[in-house]
């Protein structure tokens, strides 16, 4: 990929530096006192929400590891490298918030795998890394789409939807960087 390809969207990308998970979402996840007041009657509900949040946490941890691999591969050139590090930072924020929410619900946050067995041998160029990252981001969007409707706590669902939006932006930007239609469809699945 040439700098010429990247220049037209620099102003668009620069906006991502300002994006953080909203303070309200963090408060909803980490500071909502009602999450700490789980009654026996709602224990199964809380267990289900823990399962869903832990699935999301596992996916976030995998994304963090994947961007680490990309950043250390030597295949990414600036400004794409900076973008990858920025996206990794978002995933770290998501993971931190999700882990706190799981703990708040009385669950045990999953821990990152020691080895994700990423296809290192197939990553030979910047485009390969971006395509791999895009596949994980698309999967993350779908994972959150599969989480939002079944999270019992609507505040958690709202926060998960907030993260979904971020994952979808990552996916679109990576597709743009690959020269693909960044938003190929009206509805995500």
């Amino acid at each position: 990929m040439s700098d010429l390809d990247l220049n037209p969207r620099r102003s668009f990308l620069s906006g991502f530096g300002k994006f953080t998970l909203s303070a309200s979402a963090i408060a909803l996840l980490a500071g909502n006192e009602k999450l700490a007041l789980i009654t026996p009657a709602s224990a199964q509900t809380a267990n289900n929400d823990v399962t869903i949040l832990n699935s999301a946490l596992g996916a976030e941890q995998q994304a963090i590891a994947a961007y680490q691999l990309g950043a250390e591969s030597g295949l990414l050139q600036k400004p794409v490298l900076d973008l990858a590090v920025q996206f990794q930072g978002h995933h770290k924020q998501h993971a931190d918030v999700l882990a706190k929410a799981v703990a708040k619900l009385g669950g045990k946050p999953v821990v990152p795998l020691k080895d994700y067995a990423f296809p290192k041998a197939k990553l030979k160029a910047q485009a390969d890394v971006l395509a791999f990252a895009a596949s994980l981001e698309k999967g993350a969007v779908s994972a959150y789409l599969g989480a939002v409707p079944i999270l019992t706590d609507r505040e958690l669902a709202k926060a998960a939807a907030s993260i979904l939006g971020d994952e979808a932006m990552h996916w679109a930007v990576l597709r743009q960087a690959l020269g693909q239609n960044p938003v190929p469809e009206a509805f995500m699945s």
């Binding site: 699935s55 596992g58 996916a59 941890q61 995998q62 994304a63 795998l113 994700y116 067995a117 596949s135 994980l136 698309k138 999967g139 993350a140 779908s142 994972a143 789409l145 599969g146 699945s189």
Partner: peptide, 17 residues
């Protein structure tokens, strides 16, 4: 195409999440 939804957690040849 539908399998792309699974890729945040699954892979064909290796265990991940």
């Amino acid at each position: 195409e539908i399998y792309h939804r699974c890729l945040a957690c699954h892979a064909l040849a290796v265990n991940r999440v």
